[in-house]
């Protein structure tokens, strides 16, 4: 075995060292142990590999990807194809909503795909059990929401940027920030989601509210001049109706 041949093989030696017992590396490893120059090269190469692997491992998926995967597959619609962007989830979620059962207060027809996708996102996030707004503004909002008999807040009561920037839980839907707070009303837990009307959801969500029920829970979706809202709960559609 030449030095170049040994280098060629050792390039495939994993930085974790898990290949130590692999006979394919045996001769090259022995060679590196006996040849100081090759040994130094191998040490340098492994150090570099370890540094690169460590850095790349810090790259995280975007928030909301897991929920989008679960929502898309739950819909079970094979009409989509790759390359259509995150919006293809909307189409899948719409199909799911139609299959599972959709209720609208405004019109007897089914909600559009944006409404269904947003509702599906809210329900999926709710069941992930990673909830709770933080920060003083979020606390004030929760207090308002929990006040008996109060209605859901509107554009004038929501300071989106302030809530987001002061630590209110922020998730991602179709590439857009969504703030979320939890609140309790009449003994039932609800999750309110608010996103600005500047994304793909807002292209199709108009007015409302629309109510969507899935096996995991139900959601109401509506919008005003500034925001798209969704409130999700396992308490059922009637409990959601009472909030609005």
């Amino acid at each position: 075995m030449t030095t170049d041949e040994a280098k060629f093989i050792l390039c495939a030696f994993r930085p974790s060292g898990r290949d130590t017992g692999d006979s394919a590396f045996g001769e090259a490893l022995r060679f590196a142990g006996e040849d100081p120059v090759l040994g130094a090269w191998f040490a340098q190469s492994r150090a570099h590999d370890g540094a690169v692997a460590g850095k790349l491992g810090l790259v995280s998926p975007p928030p909301g990807l897991r929920e989008a995967i679960l929502a898309g597959v739950r819909a079970g619609d094979s009409r989509t194809s790759v390359g259509l962007g995150w919006g293809w989830i909307a189409g899948l979620a719409a199909a799911a909503a139609v299959a599972i059962g959709v209720f609208s207060m405004r019109a007897p027809g089914r909600p559009d795909s944006g409404t269904s996708a947003y509702a599906g996102f809210a329900i999926n996030d709710m069941v992930s059990e990673k909830h709770g707004g933080r920060g003083e503004p979020a606390g004030a909002l929760v207090a308002e929401l929990q006040a008996k008999g109060s209605k859901m807040p509107g554009a004038d009561q929501i300071d989106f940027e302030k809530l987001r920037d002061t630590g209110c839980r922020t998730v991602n839907f179709a590439g857009h920030d969504v703030i979320e707070v939890c609140f309790v009303r009449d003994g039932a837990l609800f999750h309110l989601y608010v996103t600005r009307r500047d994304g793909p959801v807002s292209d199709s969500v108009a007015g409302g509210p629309s109510f969507i029920a899935e096996a995991a829970g139900a959601a109401a979706v509506w919008s005003d001049r500034r925001f798209d809202y969704a409130v999700a709960s396992t308490a059922g559609i009637e409990a959601l109706r009472k909030l609005l």
Partner: peptide
């Protein structure tokens, strides 16, 4: 990348 991951799981499921 997000689309690719979603599509991969979708294929798995279907």
């Amino acid at each position: 990348a997000g689309d690719l991951v979603q599509q991969t799981f979708f294929i798995w499921a279907t």
